[in-house]
Simulated scan of single mutants.
Amino acid sequence: MGKSKLIIAAAFMSMSLSAFGAGAHGDEHKHGASVEKVGKPGKASDVSRTITVAMFDNYYEPEEISVRSGETVRFVVKNEGVMVHEFNIGTAAMHKAHQEEMLVMMKHGVIQGNKINHEMMEMDMGDGQSMKHDDPNSVLLEPGQSQEIIWTFSGDGNIEFACNVPGHYQSGMVGDVKFN
Rank of each mutant, 00 (worst) to 15 (best):
G90N: 05
V76W: 10
E86P: 06
G81K: 02
P62G: 15
N79T: 04
V139E: 02
N88T: 07
E80V: 06
H85R: 14
G113P: 04
G144Y: 03
E71M: 12
M121T: 07
I111C: 05
H95W: 07
V73P: 00
N79K: 10
E122N: 10
P136Y: 09
N117E: 06
G109W: 07
M121E: 09
E122M: 10
S130R: 15
E100P: 00
H108W: 06
Q129N: 14
E119L: 05
D127Y: 12
V139G: 01
V110N: 00
K78R: 12
V104P: 00
P143A: 13
Q145P: 03
Q129H: 15
D135V: 10
T91L: 06
Q129C: 06
M83A: 14
E148C: 09
M94D: 00
E63R: 10
Q129G: 08
G128E: 02
S146Y: 08
E71R: 14
G81V: 00
E148T: 13
D135A: 12
G81Y: 01
N79V: 04
I65C: 07
D124M: 15
I149D: 01
I65A: 08
S138C: 12
E142A: 15
A93Y: 06
T91H: 03
R74S: 08
L103N: 00
H95N: 05
D127T: 13
G113W: 08
L141K: 02
M83G: 08
S66W: 11
M131D: 04
M94I: 07
E101L: 07
D124K: 14
E63Q: 14
M125S: 08
P62W: 09
V84F: 00
M106E: 05
V139F: 06
E122W: 08
M83S: 08
M83D: 03
M106W: 02
Q129D: 10
K115R: 15
G113Y: 14
H85E: 04
Q147L: 12
G70I: 03
F87E: 02
F75Y: 10
E64C: 11
E119S: 15
L141Y: 01
